[in-house]
Each structure stands twice: as C-alpha cells, then as structure tokens.
Nucleic acid binder design. Structure first.
Lengths: 115, 115
DNA sequence: CTGGATCCGTTTAGATACTG
DNA sequence: CAGTATCTAAACGGATCCAG
C-alpha cells in the first residue's frame, strides 16, 4: 500500500478556505474599493464598480458581511443611508490584495482592459 | 464640475488584470498544486484536485496555458504522457498564493471543509 | 436611497460517449 | 493516457417592479 508516486501530501484546506471567501464575481473588487476608500455608501460603491448590477452588488455584499469581511452600518433616517467598510478580518486580507496589485503593476500589458 | 465627494481616484487596472487571470473556478487550485508539486501529469493533477471534471480541468488548463501561466509539455509516445508545470510568469504569482496560505492558516475555522 | 422579489434569457458545468 | 464533442440541467446574472 503506497501513496501516488511523485505526489507529496499537501494540506490545501487553509488555502481553499481563503479562496472560498473571495471567489464570486465581484467580491475582490468590492474589497479593493473598500480598502482604497475606507468607507463607502452603497451608491458610491456601485458607481465605483462601474457595470455591476443592483442584484449582484447587494448579494455579494450580503455574503461578504455574512463571512465577516465587511461591516454594514445603517443610519436610521429617511432617505436611508448605509455605509460599508472592512472589518478587522477583512483588513487582515489586505496583504493579499496588496500582492495582487504589486503583481498587476509589474505585469499588466499596455492597453489591456477588462472586456 | 467636481468628482464624487469622498471618493478618491484609484487605478484598478493592474489589480483587475491580476484577478482576470486567476478567476475561474479551478485556476487557483491548479496553480496551487503545481506550486507544491512542481510538475504533474494530467491524471495526477486530476486526482489531486478531487472532484473536478474532465471537461473543467482541460478547459481551465488551456486558459492558463494561453495566459502564459502554465507550461504544457507533451511526450510523443503511446500511451500519451503530458506534464504540466508553472512558467516563470506563473511562478511570479506564487507570493500571492503564499499570502493566501498564510491568511488561511491563521483564519480557517476548526472543522471547516469545502461544501 | 437602499434594498428585496420575480421573471427570464444566457452561461456554465456535469455526464456521457468518442478519438488518437 | 489525455483529451474533444455533444447534450442537458442547473446556476448565474440582467432587467424590472415593489417597498421601507
């Protein structure tokens, strides 16, 4: 009884956990803007993200909040005002985003743009 | 004429470029295993990833290869043998994966597992 | 302004069969 | 062994309407 040849045992669980929190079409972008802008209202976030739809933004924010990465602060007034920001857990992910930015700056091709 | 209040101008292009290369359900996991194992045959990769389907794995590998992150080496023999590994560009992304692992190790809840 | 709910077309991804 | 092709169910995502 032997394990597969040439394939070492590796624990992917911690890595997979991190990935599971940030996949989803807009999550990384949301985290990015909250990182750069600190606190944003719902409508500001929507404008910043560009072509995200209402449905997507609200659902992604809800998941990020449920995962403890984003803080939702609601001001009881009319019209409503809601501000989003990073939690401590969310902030602790910023080194990851920072690495992504660093890599991007060194590798983004001239003239590249999101299709 | 003024820009939005409280919203500073930020260039998200490099970040978005990095994201665009690694989103896709299995790409990060593929990069992870090639990182840890150096070189893997198609079937070894498939076993390592667990429940990935044939179709997904081949399509994701193809995209990673097209983006210059993964190298495909084919040995002309019967039965065929194909090995995958990271390119230099692929390796240059490893600090990002490294950060994800570090964060995951510090934050993965006890008993958490991929649904 | 900040959402939730619904309808509905598009995309995705799994299962299966087939090839060199 | 390492793929490709096709068919189909399910998930996703956009548009729109409604509400506090």
């Amino acid at each position: 009884m032997k394990t597969q040849e040439n394939v070492k045992p590796v624990d992917i669980r911690p890595f997979a956990y991190a990935i599971s929190l940030i996949d989803g079409k807009w999550k990384m972008h949301i985290l990015f803007w909250l990182w750069k802008q600190d606190t944003l209202r719902y409508s500001e976030l929507k404008r910043s993200l560009g072509n995200v739809t209402h449905k997507m933004l609200s659902s992604q924010l809800k998941e990020l909040e449920a995962d403890g990465l984003v803080l939702r602060r609601e001001y009881p007034q009319v019209p409503p005002k809601v501000e989003y920001s990073l939690t401590e857990k969310g902030k602790s992910m910023m080194p990851i985003l920072s690495e992504l930015c660093r890599w991007g700056n060194q590798n983004v091709p001239d003239g590249w743009e999101q299709n």
